[in-house]
Computed example of a mutant assay.
Amino acid sequence: MTNDDLRGSVRFESVRKSFGAHVAIRDLSLTIRPGTLVTLLGPSGCGKTTTLRMLAGLEQPTSGRILIGGRDVTALPANERDVSMVFQSYALFPHMSVAENVAYGLRSSGLGRKPATEKAEQGLELVGLAGYGGRLPSELSGGQQQRVAVARALVLEPQVLLLDEPLSNLDARLRRRVRTEIRELQQRLGFTAVYVTHDQEEALAVSDEIVVMRDGEAAQIGAPRDLYEEPASEFIADFIGEANVVACEILGHGAGRARIRIGGYEHEMAARPVPSGAGRLAIRPNAVYLREADGGFGGRVLSAAYLGDHVEYEIETAAGTLFVTDPAVERVRPVGSSVGLGLAERGVAIIPSSPRGGRQVPPQTGRSA
């Protein structure tokens, strides 16, 4: 493979990072293909930001290697790694114009004023801010300021663009719009991006692949659909979306399908090969549908909340208490009423045995905490 083929690729080879006695990253091995957007996702303290900072050259690994474009950059300082970072605070200079902010890195690297200004204007055009170069950052909205920060990083033509919680300072509606803009820009220009967030919905929306991190390790790596529909552990099932995790009996498997029993109710579903016997089942709240009391397996409504486009229920069953979302808002089942429950074809997954990857759920409840 040539250097051109490797440009934009990233590899972590058995990377470990310790801060004194605290191990922040444990033996991380990860390959990021050129031209893809990969998200590091996980709860606070899982190691995602430390991983990004090691890639940026702001932290040094305790052991292992980091390669960018096939080149070992483990010991190189940040300014020699050919990466650019977009910070959650944007880090724009308030006294400089938008164009000056975008051109700042170019000027610092020795490019003349005129070519730097021209490239800055091109960068602003890329992110839909042509004509905004003369304004101050304070004259822009939060979403526009974020796009200026992205333009400033892109004009340096890095092999890899790093984004550290880039939308955390935006309100919910603006977050949705800006994340779409970032994704469309990445796909149009084809650059490699590594994106850090704790927001599961954000990760699902923008990523080619997601690295779900937990306690300094990669708990699961895969495409958004794979992680959502085939979680490798209870932790993944509950972290990527929400899931009820309950005990089940696996009756048999063949031709990519399994038959399971839960609370006396039998259900057939697509599944990876699994042995027969006791198992665990992750059930998405929208994969449970309500029937009359004499259908499916029985339950009793413990709570009901009308939320406009759906109703949220907690339903007590023989398998545990299930959290259920139902789009049938025209009929809200009263608390204390008996209902029958069935399972949809999608949104139900058998959880593989994984001593470290999951967490045990008390038998009296089916919903992961």
Rank of each mutant, 00 (worst) to 15 (best):
A237H: 04
E266C: 08
D226C: 00
Q146R: 11
T197W: 00
I262F: 03
A193H: 01
I240R: 05
P224I: 08
Q146V: 11
R225H: 13
E184S: 14
Q146N: 05
E201L: 12
L204Q: 11
P158R: 12
T197N: 06
I250S: 00
Y265N: 05
E217W: 03
Y195W: 03
Q146W: 07
R183S: 15
I221T: 15
A237I: 08
G143R: 06
Y265Q: 06
L251G: 04
A247R: 14
R225T: 14
E202W: 01
Q187S: 13
R176A: 13
V155M: 07
R259F: 01
V150M: 12
I240V: 15
A205L: 02
I262K: 07
E242Q: 14
V206G: 06
Q145R: 15
Q220P: 00
G222D: 02
R188G: 12
V206L: 00
Y265P: 04
Y265T: 10
V160E: 04
E229C: 06
A151T: 07
V194N: 10
Q145D: 09
R261C: 13
V206R: 02
A247S: 15
I250V: 14
A151H: 05
Q144V: 11
G241P: 06
L227W: 05
A232Y: 01
S168H: 02
D199K: 08
R259T: 13
Q146S: 12
E242H: 14
Y228A: 11
M213D: 02
A153E: 06
P231V: 09
E184G: 11
G222R: 03
H253E: 13
T180W: 06
Q145F: 03
R176S: 12
A243H: 01
A258V: 08
R173T: 13
G252I: 01
F239R: 08
A243E: 00
Q145A: 11
V196R: 04
Y228F: 15
A258T: 09
G222C: 07
P224Y: 04
P224V: 05
T180K: 13
E217S: 15
A205E: 04
R177N: 15
D215E: 14
T180C: 10
R261W: 04
D208F: 05
R259N: 10
L227K: 06
L161E: 08
R183A: 15
G190A: 06
R179N: 11
D199A: 13
R188I: 11
V194P: 03
T180Q: 14
R225P: 00
Q220R: 08
Y265S: 10
Q187R: 15
F191G: 02
V211R: 03
S168K: 02
H253G: 09
L161D: 07
N169F: 00
R177H: 15
M213V: 09
V160S: 09
Q144F: 02
L154N: 05
G252Y: 01
L163F: 12
A219Q: 13
L185T: 08
Q145G: 07
E242G: 14
D164N: 09
G256D: 00
A258E: 07
R173F: 06
A218V: 15
Q187W: 00
I236M: 10
F235S: 06
F191V: 10
N169T: 08
V178W: 00
A151G: 09
T197I: 07
A243M: 04
P224G: 07
I240T: 06
V178H: 07
S207I: 02
L163W: 05
R179T: 10
E249Y: 01
V150D: 03
V148F: 02
G263C: 08
F191Y: 10
